[in-house]
């Protein structure tokens, strides 16, 4: 293989790795924004509900916990895309 071909091949590999790293970072970062907003809204409303009606705090907390876990699943999907792009 000529030197030029080696350089092109090496640059191509580096470009591919750089694009994969960039894509992985974007996937993880963007995937964490949505759930962050969602959890913030959810928890804010739940805290308000518990403060207004402390007698139903147990039910609200249970529902909130499930909501947080469901919302977190979105971030987990982004994380899995990240590890598959970066490490697989």
């Amino acid at each position: 293989m000529s030197l030029a071909a080696q350089v092109i091949a090496q640059t191509g590999d580096e470009l591919k790795n750089a694009a994969a790293a960039e894509g992985a970072g974007f996937a993880y970062g963007l995937a964490a924004i949505g759930p962050g907003i969602g959890i913030g809204y959810l928890v804010g409303q739940a805290v308000q509900a518990m403060a207004r009606q402390p007698e139903s705090a147990g039910q609200v907390q249970t529902t909130m916990f499930l909501g947080v876990a469901f919302t977190e699943a979105l971030a987990l999907i982004g994380f899995v895309v990240f590890i598959l792009l970066k490490f697989a």
């Binding site: 759930p35 962050g36 959890i39």
Partner: peptide
């Protein structure tokens, strides 16, 4: 307090994502 629980939910989300990573 309820407010501390809200903070724990938000920062806990970040901490747990970091721990999974």
């Amino acid at each position: 307090s309820f407010a501390a629980m809200g903070a724990a939910a938000m920062f806990g989300f970040l901490i747990r994502l970091g721990l999974i990573f």
